[in-house]
Amino acid sequence: MIANRPPESRDSISRRSFLRGSTAAAAGVAAMAAGLAPLRKLGEAISVDEFLQQHYKELKPEDMDKVLRRIEGEVERQYGVRPHVRDYKPMNGVEYVYALNLTRCVGCRKCVHACVAENNQSRDPAIQYIQVIKMPNGTFDMEKGDAHYAPESVPEKGFFYMPVQCHQCKNPPCTKVCPVKATWTEPDGITVIDYNWCIGCRYCEAACPYFARRFNFSEPTIPKDQINPEMSYLGNQPRHKGVMEKCHFCIQRTRVGRYPACLEVCPTGSRKFGNILDPNSEVAHILREKRVFVLKEEVGTLPRFFYYFDV
């Protein structure tokens, strides 16, 4: 089927079809470009500083200072409140442990909301680091639990209440799987997230056996008058859409020696927190004298969050 054509007509056929094709191609490319139209509403483009910012562990003190000032400026622009954003370093000779007394927890959820207020969590969509599971007496089968209970008053007879938040595991599956090391365990035991480094792949959320992690599916909203201006870089600085967050043992409080917000509001004193390396701390006493257990011990996460019953 080899036909001999004079070069001109051969070229003209291909030229015609080339022009035809390229017109359609141009229209197609234009349609694709028009497809990007929604990006007009992207608003403030990400600043070059923020885009190029290095990982937390690579930041020198002067770089970190610049970052903190930048964050302060951003928060002020967004919420009209000038915050204090600091980078708290871990204390030496400290390893945090949390103990929760399941006899005393009545399921009032004051801890949940104290955490929300302290840590500048999004109200819409609502993010809550702590989930209180109402369990029927006699079982630890989570499928029988219910986190959405809404009775007139608590506690209800025949049930116990089990708050679950990040356990700051010693062998965390979440830090293992993060492809960019945006989450790691600090020397004092807290598993932290560098919100400005996280790429939002949600692998850590899939890996966590305790449903402790939360993802910002959209830009968080916090009422301006409810912002907590005392912030820390690894803790309660306001997050943005597309990054993970979770309980960090109120790092901005605990690293200056204070109790976490959830503990301070518990009306029945069910929550206990302290330095396990101090043999006189209440958590050291609890781990020595009470019959403590952890959730899903068989997964091997070695949580730093212990549950126990008093009576």
Binding site: P179, K181, A182, W197, I199, F215, K241
Partner: peptide, 23 residues
């Protein structure tokens, strides 16, 4: 699927922070 696709450069070995061989 990424929440922050512009941060893909964090995945580039030696430029970002690559969690190999852990992840």
């Amino acid at each position: 699927d990424l929440g922050r696709p512009e941060r893909f450069w964090h995945l580039i070995p030696f430029v970002g922070k690559f969690n190999f061989p852990g992840s």
